[in-house]
C-alpha cells in the first residue's frame, strides 16, 4: 500500500465516528498496537522535543525501507505516534520525505491538536522526516 492509500484508509476509519471523544477512543486503541521501541533506544536523545509528554522515536533501515518504533508516557501521544507510524513506517526515505500527510487535516487532527508546544504532532512529523533524510544520506 502506498502512503496515500494508507492515509485514505485512516480517513475512512475516522469517518465512522461522529464525536471527537469516540475518535479519541480510537486513537487510544491504535496506541495499543504501537510497534514499541527497544529499551536500549529509549534514551534522552531519542526523545522528541516539543511534546508535553515524553515521546521516544527510533528509526532504522531494513531493505531500503525505514522502520519506526516508538513509545510515549501519555496514552494519547502514544496513539498519535502510532497513527503516524502506521502511515510512514515500511516506506522508502524518499516516500517519507515527500509525504504530504493530508490525512492529518482531513481527519481534523490539526484543529483538535493545534500545532502548539503542548501536543507535538508537528514535532513528531518533523522528526520522522529528519530520520528519513538522515537514512537517505547514509546509503
Amino acid at each position: 500500500m502506498t502512503i496515500e492509500e494508507k492515509e485514505r484508509e485512516l480517513i475512512d476509519s475516522f469517518a465512522i465516528y461522529e464525536d471527537w471523544m469516540e475518535k479519541y477512543e480510537y486513537i487510544i486503541e491504535l496506541g495499543k498496537d504501537l510497534p514499541l521501541i527497544a529499551d536500549d533506544y529509549k534514551t534522552e536523545e531519542n526523545i522528541i522535543k516539543g511534546c508535553q509528554s515524553m515521546v521516544w522515536l527510533h528509526a532504522e533501515k531494513k531493505d531500503d525501507k525505514v522502520v519506526f518504533t516508538a513509545d510515549a508516557d501519555a496514552i494519547i501521544a502514544k496513539g498519535i505516534i502510532a497513527l503516524l507510524i502506521d502511515v510512514l513506517s515500511n516506506e522508502t526515505p524518499e516516500a517519507i520525505m515527500n509525504a504530504k500527510l493530508e490525512f492529518i487535516n482531513a481527519i481534523g487532527l490539526q484543529e483538535h491538536l493545534s500545532p502548539t508546544r503542548s501536543n507535538g504532532l508537528v514535532a513528531m512529523v518533523k522528526q520522522m522526516k529528519m530520520y528519513a533524510i538522515a537514512l537517505n544520506m547514509k546509503q
Partner: peptide
Amino acid sequence: GTHPYDIGTLLNQQGIAVRTG
C-alpha cells in the same frame, strides 16, 4: 497512572479549559 496531558486533552474535548504542565 494517568498523564496530565491525556486528562487535559480529553477534558478539552468536553469543553473544559484547564492547564496542564
